[in-house]
Design a binder for these strands. Structure first.
Lengths: 283, 283
DNA sequence: AAAAAGTCGGAATAAAAAATTCCGAAAGAT
DNA sequence: ATCTTTCGGAATTTTTTATTCCGACTTTTT
């Protein structure tokens, strides 16, 4: 239990002097960290020895130890807020609240995304990816960025990847696919017209279609051979596109890592690519 | 930034005595918390005064303050929710292990990124963003995707944003900046030549330069007016670019949300933009 | 109700720790 | 090779912490 909680719990049963000192620490923990025992005594109108005794009654060797404990407690409080704060981000929220809500939304999106996809389906996607002659990526808007991010990563592994942010170019590329190829179609709603049409075309041409959609990804999921789902916490963060994107990235990152595991020479590829890029660094 | 990171970063440039003291603190932070300056001196074979001077060189008033900072840093580090698996992803790891390692790396990157940026610096970036006549984004490679993602979001709020993935175009755009404009420069290494040159040009032209770099973002940070840091957990996940990107997105998402809070009509803008896009949906 | 026992809390003091000063040695610059 | 700067420890001063001691007040016991 954190010291602050401990002090708070015992506050009622303390002698007046101790209670006064305890209250001050609870009210101004940050200030207390900067004060010496004598200064704290002056601040509370008590004696320096009382401050030391207060520390010892709490089980510490002395005032210094108490300070360390308070510092630790404050830091932990900052990081592990008393239970994650739920609910959507509101206009009146303070900086810290927003921060906590944002991070907890992101975590939830990632965890749920991992939870909704079974290992078999991931495995199937992975095999398709690994065996593909060419990998084609489709996606518009924010999903296009995820597609591109994934493309870059796969290229680092020496894979044959095609992606363009222009949906007409994507469509043109899709018309060249065949049974040896894989199309990754990203659309959180599952209803983006361009992505849908591209997926349909790819399917007609015999390519394996992997759909990455939100939980209700109809109609895109109906076109797909392999279905992967992303869970975004739309209620929490105002613009849901944030967590939808995080969920998509969680999934593509996972596929990337798993693909590395399957490819013995992956490290060489990644290393070479990094060496090449480092030529473009200053210093 | 946590003291431990700070010590680690400066360790190389320290004088022998300081390096020895610093190394001991990095190696045994918990033990150090129980030691007095003299005891730490004895432990490292150095003098007590050197320990105090070491503390002061790091910017603290004295050894006591350093101890408080270390205690705080340790507490923050000790964030790991139960069930998190540490260590880098290895070849032999099973599906579940990889999953857990990946997610914990991502969480850590996000949390540390929030931890290293003070509210004031975020506030400054926000004000610059809010008051900017035009917002220009620079970044190459993976950072370019982050820049683009951020651009899209800001555009949804009706902001004047410029971004192109081609660095020559970015440079040309930068040449049109003036004191009323803001340049966001993304580079995890802080050393990408193109981004650096663009930032220099923007700075010369009087624009406010916001640098978003990793913890050691030199030389880009030296050009910047406002410095934001991203913490990636490079050791854990093979390709560090994953967590570096997550950290950058964490930061841009935070800025976006905070900007929404400041803009009363933000909801209208977002709503209109979503309505417009929904025309492109099937169903 | 009075004495005894115990608690509380501050002043004074002792002990410890921290911070500063000073100076010689080593490294670097000119 | 000489000058300057930096480094780092010994010694000293200052500050902070911990202990002791004692009077005032409370509670218990007889």
């Amino acid at each position: 239990m954190s010291v602050l909680r401990k002090i708070n719990a015992q506050l009622e049963d303390m002698a007046p002097a101790d209670r006064q000192i305890g209250r001050f620490i609870l009210d101004h923990p940050d200030q207390m960290l900067k004060l010496s025992s004598a200064a704290l005594a002056a601040e509370t109108g008590r004696s320096q020895s009382s401050v030391v005794k207060f520390s010892q009654k709490l089980g510490f060797a002395g005032y210094q130890e108490l300070k360390l404990a308070v510092s630790k407690a404050k830091a932990q409080e900052w990081h592990a807020p008393p239970g994650m704060i739920h609910g959507s981000i509101e206009v009146g929220d303070g900086y810290l609240t927003i921060l906590q809500k944002l991070i907890s939304s992101k975590m939830l999106a990632m965890q749920q995304t991992l939870a909704v996809n079974g290992e078999q389906e991931i495995e199937r996607a992975l095999t398709a990816l690994n065996d593909a002659r060419r990998i084609h990526m489709a996606g518009v808007g924010a999903s296009s960025l995820v597609a591109r991010d994934f493309s870059y990563k796969l290229m680092k592994l020496g894979r044959n990847v095609l992606h363009d942010s222009d949906s007409h170019v994507q469509m043109a590329n899709a018309s060249t696919l065949n049974a040896a190829d894989v199309l990754f179609a990203f659309s959180y709603s599952g209803a983006s017209i361009e992505t849908l049409r591209i997926a349909e075309l790819a399917r007609e041409r015999g390519a394996t279609v992997v759909a990455v959609t939100g939980l209700n990804g109809v109609p895109l999921t109906q076109v797909a051979n392999i279905r992967l789902y992303t869970a975004a916490d739309e209620e929490r963060v105002r613009s849901s596109s944030i967590t939808a994107r995080d969920a998509q990235l969680m999934l593509t990152d996972l596929l990337f890592i798993l693909l590395i595991q399957r490819q013995p020479d992956a490290n060489d590829y990644v290393h070479n690519s990094e060496t090449a890029v480092s030529v473009l660094k200053a210093r």
